[in-house]
Amino acid sequence: MLKRTHFNPSPLPYLLVTPQILITIIFFIWPASQAVFQSLLVEDAFGLKTEFVWFDNFIELFSDQIYFNSFGKTIVFSSLVAFLSLGTALILAATADRIVRGATTYRTLLIWPYAVAPVVAGTLWMFIFDPTLGIVAYMLDMMGYDWNHRLNGNQAMALIIFAASWKQISYNFLFFLAGMQAIPKSLTEAAAIDGAGPAWRFWTIIFPLLSPTTFFLLVMNIVYAFFETFGIVHAVTKGGPAGATEIMVYKVYNDGFIGLDLGGSAAQSVVLMVIVITLTVIQFRYIERKVEY
């Protein structure tokens, strides 16, 4: 064993980690602790006086039916987004893995949506599906289907699910493709000789071997659907109609910055924070153990 005194103490290592620590403190620890503190306060309507109320904000939150509705919507939204984007990306990656000619073009095109900002993606989908201007809405109308996501809550939900999934497909595609390319080709060849058709090979060989990637992406997609879809919701529906698309992260914004209930909003963001911390812990705990083959 080397003794500590063998190393000359130097300030350099501390200096090198300082920027990272500063960034974490300024952009994460400080705002997070502010949110936790804020969630224990109630402010009056004019912002003149602040009262410390312990957990009253949380008690109120958990007895609020609207909050639970929002929670349910978030679950539906995020699971559908994760399922849709993972499924589509998996199919696209499997196809991209097979083709030889034009593979680079195909891949590049598939990766592009990732470079689109959430708000822009939302606006794009909003225009396509706009009840009065949108081309898809027009075509649906010709087919006798009445599309109006400004009035129909389910349609509004479907629209933001599509928009959010579309944007995430590129990310998933990249990881799936990389995962598939890491699987030796001889495995699928051996399975082909053993008598498995392409679909069966996929389900019995490729999919199980991709499971670490799939699990990682599942967690990442849920986190994405929970938190990063704010821009899409804001651009497409603003949580409407009548709160039909008000997922949790949007409700934080709506209650806090529009409704000016800062304490309640902070309490909601603390709940969200707990969820993301849980997901991250699951991610780190299990990804390298449980899904290993």
């Binding site: 030796p184 001889s186 495995l187 060849e189 051996a190 082909a192 000789i193 053993d194 008598g195 498995a196 058709g197």
Partner: peptide, 14 residues
């Protein structure tokens, strides 16, 4: 390959 009634040992065993 599956209809040829052959079996193959690969270099990396696969």
């Amino acid at each position: 390959p599956k209809d040829r009634d052959i079996a193959m040992v690969f270099q990396n065993y696969a």
